[in-house]
């Protein structure tokens, strides 16, 4: 038991160290295409503003959507941006590049190094710029939302962060499951469109789903959890049961994602050079 704990600790330490090293490599690479950075940031801010305006328009007609007030919804939108950037800082761009790696056979490199292929793929393509604007607006929106809440405590901040991480696990597990298909069909463009809409749809509060829909969007396509649960935790809307369900979904998506992915890469048929 002690040995196991030590091994896990050592592994985490090693991956954190590798993350730092890879991050600096990626930054050096990004510097070469600096102008990209500003364009992307401006575009992101534009996109987020559109969602905010959309919600503003809706809220001029109603006072709440599925129990969510305007300021709570603002926190929800902001959380999506923060989770997106967290994903780009870890795994998201790796999956976008996966199709290319498979088609060109460069995925070979990830198979022969002493790092798990999914982690190597993720670290190889860490991107700060991709969702940076959205993250900044996200943080601003969340802070703005908090300042307008009346039932808010400091304890909810660490809880919020824990549930953001949990949502990242859900997102990662979901991406692993979807992208595992690539080892059979080679083309992934469509696959990542699915993942994109998955995140787009998570902007809407999970409470809008009822009955079968609620079950599906909690356990099978967990868009009802991704942004809704962290935002609920922060705004004090959540119940213990829904928080526990979210943690359960997070852990199960992450573990099944990793298991399915591991099985799938056995099917990798490297493009011959």
């Amino acid at each position: 038991m002690k040995q196991l704990a030590y091994n896990i600790f050592r592994k985490i330490k090693r991956y954190l160290h590798l993350y730092r090293v890879f991050l600096s490599q990626n930054l050096k690479e990004d510097m070469i295409y600096r102008s990209n950075f500003i364009t992307l940031a401006v575009m992101d801010i534009g996109f987020v503003s559109v969602s905010v305006i959309l919600f503003k328009i809706i809220f001029t007609h109603v006072t709440s959507i599925a129990g969510w007030t305007f300021h709570q919804s603002i926190i929800l939108i902001g959380s999506v941006g923060i989770i997106r950037e967290m994903a780009y800082l870890t795994f998201r761009r790796g999956f976008l590049e996966l199709g290319n790696h498979i088609r060109k056979g460069t995925f070979d490199t990830f198979m022969v190094r002493p790092i798990a292929p999914n982690i190597h793929l993720a670290f190889r393509h860490i991107s700060i710029s991709e969702s940076f604007g959205e993250a900044i607006t996200g943080v601003v929106l969340v802070i703005y939302g908090i300042l307008h809440l009346n039932n808010w405590t400091w304890v909810s901040i660490p809880l919020y962060i824990i549930f953001l991480l949990n949502s990242l696990f859900v997102y990662y597990g979901f991406s692993l499951l979807i992208n595992s298909i690539v080892f059979w069909v080679i083309k992934t463009q469509e696959l990542n469109t699915i993942v994109y809409f998955f995140m787009e749809t998570s902007r809407y509060p999970g409470d809008i789903y009822r009955g079968v829909g609620k079950f599906i969007f909690t356990f099978i396509i967990p868009i009802g959890i991704i942004a809704t649960v962290p935002a609920s935790v922060l705004t004090g809307r959540t119940s213990w049961s829904s928080a526990l369900i979210a943690l359960f979904v997070g852990i199960s998506f992450l573990t099944t994602g990793i298991l399915v992915w591991r099985k799938s890469i056995e099917h990798y048929s490297s493009a011959s050079g």
Partner: peptide, 30 residues
Amino acid sequence: QRQFSIVMGQKNQLWWDLPAQESFQLNKEI
């Protein structure tokens, strides 16, 4: 994996936009 290496004439394993030295440094860590 720590005890073998594979080099493929037609596949590039170095970081394309960075000097080779950077890839060496990364391999040191990997």
